[in-house]
Design a protein around this nucleic acid. Structure first.
Length: 275
DNA sequence: AACAAGACCTGCATGC
DNA sequence: TGCATGCAGGTCTTGT
């Protein structure tokens, strides 16, 4: 579920309850998610103060006051829920953080594709989960020449290339579909043929799509603790994702939006508008 | 090195 | 109702 904008929204929602707080209790309710938790994770976190929260690609980074960093990924189905009142743990509540002021942050993940690891702050960039990840799409280092260079020689479809976190960080199936649609680039186009104006349009579209989604998340965050405390989910209007057969909002093509499968994953697009 | 396919999990919608 | 199937917003690993 969570791509860059959702993870960014989760991070922003967690800041007010975690930054500056001491972790009074950490309850690890099973030994692993997708991979085993690091040894004695709970013991290493208890008593630490959270200095700050950040995001890199789709990872949540929790910087602690002893120079360790908790690296957390929500996988496909992970959520963070803020609870202010006591309630029994749910079926897939795998890790529960509790701050000194009694607020609990519950990591829930039915499919268990999420992961958590600990790293040293000084070597964070070299951590295996992070070291090969490409530029942040909303940073200055992501631009048309940089994207063109990273795609050069790639024979795979642009759809697959944009899902590759080494090319650009944080995109997933939804926002790749949306960005390709907006930039009028066919998902089937060979990645290595993206250059010049086309690359600029694609970069602009990626930025716009992500920025708008973060804003949508931000407005849902205004009362950031929803009734159920869940973070990161917000209703957002997509142009093509999940709209097979519907009319294309931007052209009068017959048949409307199509769904194809690329690399085992659904792609939604308009074959008239996207070339 | 690049690429495709399979694996890892559970839950839900759909169709018979 | 029960059961089978297909699908889900993400990585990782394996094999070509």
């Amino acid at each position: 579920m969570p791509e860059l904008p959702e993870v960014e929204t989760v991070v922003r929602g967690l800041r007010p309850v975690l930054e500056g707080r001491v972790l009074a209790h950490v309850d690890v309710r099973r030994p692993d998610l997708r991979r085993p938790f690091p040894p004695k994770m709970a013991a290493r976190l208890i008593g630490r103060r959270v200095e700050r929260l950040a995001r890199r690609a789709k990872y949540i980074l929790m910087y602690l006051d002893d120079e360790t960093v908790l690296i957390a990924h929500l996988g496909m189905s992970g959520r963070m829920v803020i609870e202010r009142d006591a309630s029994p743990p749910g079926r897939h509540d795998h890790v529960i953080f509790e701050t000194e002021d009694g607020v609990r942050i519950v990591f829930n993940d039915p499919r268990r594709f999420g992961s958590m690891d600990l790293s040293d702050e000084r070597t964070l960039d070299q951590h295996p989960l992070l070291r090969d990840i490409g530029p942040e799409p909303l940073s200055n280092s992501f631009n048309a020449p940089a994207l063109t260079e990273r795609l050069a020689g790639r024979k795979t479809a642009i759809k697959a290339a944009l899902l590759d976190q080494r090319i650009v960080a944080g995109l997933g199936n939804i926002y790749v579909c949306e960005a390709l649609y907006r930039s009028r680039v066919s998902p089937r186009r060979t990645a290595g043929t993206i250059a010049g104006k086309r690359a600029e349009k694609l970069v602009d579209a990626i930025r716009a799509v992500l920025t708008e989604a973060i804003e949508a998340g931000g407005s849902s965050l205004r009362d950031y603790v929803r009734a159920d405390g869940e973070l990161g989910y917000f209703q957002h209007q997509f142009d093509v994702y999940g709209r097979e057969g519907e009319a294309c909002v931007d052209c009068t093509c017959k048949g409307g939006i199509k769904r194809i499968v690329q690399g085992g994953r659904s792609t939604f697009f308009c074959s008239t508008r996207q070339r």
